[in-house]
Simulated scan of single mutants.
Amino acid sequence: MALPGEKDEPFLFPSTSYDSNPPQYLSSDLLSSSLPTHSFFQPFVEADGNNPVYIHPYNVESSASSISLCFPSRRVHSTFIDQVFKADLTISPSTQQTQQGFQSHCHVISSFSDLSVTLDIPSSHLTFFLVRGCPFVTLSVSHHTPPLSISTVHKVSSFTSNDSLTKYTLKLDNDQTWLIYASSPIKFSYSDGVITDDGDGVNVIVRIALLPNSSSASEDVLDRYSTCYPVSGDAFFTKTYCVEYKWEKRGFGDLLMLAHPLHLQLLSKGEGNVTILKNF
């Protein structure tokens, strides 16, 4: 209703300009339905797609044909707290020619869910299953994948393997210890600060995890659960005052996931499908 002396005209919303094209970082299979807004993986599709995404407990950054992992430290100011990103590990094709030839090619999100996002690196035939709350970062290596390279901004103190070439231990000079698992034997070698595989061209699942406090007890836990990995996760509100988490998993054995302290207090232990591990 207009006041005296004013014209009764419809309200016009301010015009805005936006890019109507779907983000280039999404698979064409995802564009037939509506896409989420303000999702946890949104930095992967904004601007150049190379902003870090916090996927508990790691920060993950995608750039060209590489993926960098960071176990973040906190920087505390009087007005805010933020996380410091430092590329503890970077996974990429090992050959310089491959890296240069695909600088313009970035990741593609092939699927996502409430708790996960799957990143494909088309140039190197790598697939990363990034699931929130998983202590491992899991990647699928195909027989088309060029030889892998794992580098770090830190100095390498030692790099060793087990006899079957399915587990490697990487110790850095910042007191971090990283464990690298493979579903089948893969031969990594270390030289001049870079770890590379021999490029046998096999299909293998590689899992990478930071060893908490370099604890042997925690290493036993990671060893035990290294053969089962999640590829997606959803949250369901099917009951009053209840949220149910479901993960799609592959491999064999039980699935290891992390929980916040509040989750530990609220977990339903009566159904017999959850085991809480102490001191991990």
Rank of each mutant, 00 (worst) to 15 (best):
G133A: 04
L31T: 06
N174H: 09
S164K: 13
T169G: 07
L222H: 09
F40H: 05
E248M: 06
S149R: 10
A64W: 11
D120V: 07
T90D: 09
S124W: 00
D220F: 12
Y54F: 15
R207N: 12
R250G: 06
S161G: 05
T152E: 07
G270D: 11
C106S: 15
I91T: 02
P52F: 15
P122H: 01
Q24W: 03
I205Q: 15
A47Q: 15
E219A: 15
T160I: 13
N21K: 13
K239Y: 03
D114K: 01
N203R: 07
S32Y: 00
C228F: 01
F159S: 15
S94D: 10
D88F: 12
V76P: 04
D254K: 14
L277W: 01
S124E: 00
T177K: 04
L172W: 08
S63Q: 14
A182Y: 00
P36G: 05
I91D: 06
Y18M: 13
Q83L: 15
T166V: 08
H38W: 09
T152Y: 13
Y58F: 15
P14Q: 12
A87S: 14
L31R: 09
T16S: 06
Y190D: 01
S28W: 00
N203F: 03
K249T: 00
S216F: 08
L30Q: 05
M257P: 04
S27N: 09
Y225C: 07
N50V: 03
P57Q: 14
E46I: 04
L262D: 12
L126R: 07
Q100T: 03
K239T: 02
P93T: 08
L3Q: 14
Q42M: 11
F112K: 01
T227I: 05
